[in-house]
Each structure stands twice: as structure tokens, then as C-alpha cells.
Simulated scan of single mutants.
Amino acid sequence: MDDLISARLHERIRRDFPEPDAARGVVGALRVLGVELEDSRQSTERLLAAAVVFAAGDVERFRLAVRLARADWRDLLMAGELGHEDWPRVLDAELGPQ
């Protein structure tokens, strides 16, 4: 397990993307995206989870989420419903408690 993607986010990826190749692709893309978004000074888990939540198990929607993040990470947070002050509660609801 790597530090960039939390255990609970890995579990959500496995649930949402049950096809092993799809899950590996999502994890690989998230690792790259996490590094690219380091300068945002936001919670990495929050940003990466927003992409997974927005995708809802659809690889094409996941690709769109990555494009959104690269254009403006704030758009990704809004699309993934993690862009408001209650984002810690929403994140726990989506991924389970830490």
C-alpha cells in the first residue's frame, strides 16, 4: 500500500471498479494525479476521492474527473461533492470512517 492512496480509498476503488485491470489503471492514474496536485495544498485523500466518487465506477467518468482536476482542482471537488465545508463528513460517508 502506498501513502498517497489511503486504505479506505483503495477499498472504494476495489468496490467501484471490480475489474482488476480497471482498478489498477485508476490507482495508477490517481498516484500521478496526487503528485500533480501537491501544490493545491488540499487533502490528497479529498482530491483523489472526489475523482473516484464522481466516476461512480465508470472509467470514462473517471477520465473526465482527471481532466477536470488538471484544469482546476476546485472543479473536481465540486463535481465529486467534496467542495463544501462539510467535506470531511461527506468523505467519511463515501469512504467509511478513518
Rank of each mutant, 00 (worst) to 15 (best):
residue 47 L to C: 06
residue 38 E to D: 13
residue 32 V to E: 03
residue 77 L to R: 01
residue 66 V to M: 01
residue 63 R to L: 07
residue 55 A to N: 07
residue 77 L to F: 03
residue 31 R to Y: 00
residue 71 A to R: 14
residue 44 T to G: 10
residue 83 G to R: 05
residue 12 R to A: 15
residue 47 L to F: 02
residue 9 L to Q: 05
residue 71 A to F: 05
residue 67 R to N: 15
residue 59 V to G: 01
residue 49 A to V: 06
residue 95 L to V: 13
residue 25 G to R: 09
residue 42 Q to S: 06
residue 80 G to T: 04
residue 47 L to T: 01
residue 2 D to F: 00
residue 42 Q to A: 09
residue 53 V to D: 06
residue 27 V to E: 05
residue 63 R to S: 10
residue 95 L to R: 11
residue 87 W to C: 03
residue 96 G to W: 11
residue 27 V to R: 05
residue 37 L to T: 05
residue 62 F to H: 08
residue 29 A to T: 08
residue 81 E to L: 09
residue 47 L to V: 07
residue 64 L to D: 04
residue 52 V to C: 11
residue 4 L to A: 12
residue 92 D to K: 10
residue 84 H to C: 02
residue 36 E to G: 01
residue 44 T to E: 05
residue 25 G to F: 12
residue 24 R to G: 06
residue 98 Q to D: 15
residue 55 A to L: 09
residue 2 D to L: 03
residue 95 L to I: 10
residue 25 G to W: 09
residue 13 I to V: 15
residue 78 M to S: 05
residue 93 A to T: 13
residue 6 S to Y: 06
residue 92 D to P: 04
residue 29 A to C: 05
residue 51 A to F: 08
residue 3 D to T: 13
residue 78 M to C: 00
residue 30 L to D: 02
residue 17 F to K: 09
residue 58 D to Q: 14
residue 36 E to L: 07
residue 42 Q to G: 00
residue 8 R to H: 11
residue 97 P to R: 15
residue 3 D to E: 10
residue 14 R to I: 12
residue 50 A to D: 04
residue 16 D to R: 13
residue 34 G to F: 04
residue 89 R to E: 15
residue 8 R to K: 14
residue 10 H to K: 03
residue 13 I to K: 10
residue 47 L to E: 03
residue 78 M to V: 04
residue 21 D to F: 15
residue 63 R to C: 07
residue 92 D to G: 12
residue 97 P to L: 13
residue 94 E to M: 06
residue 84 H to K: 01
residue 43 S to E: 09
residue 43 S to T: 10
residue 80 G to C: 04
residue 69 A to D: 08
residue 26 V to N: 09
residue 23 A to M: 12
residue 4 L to Q: 13
residue 30 L to V: 05
residue 94 E to I: 06
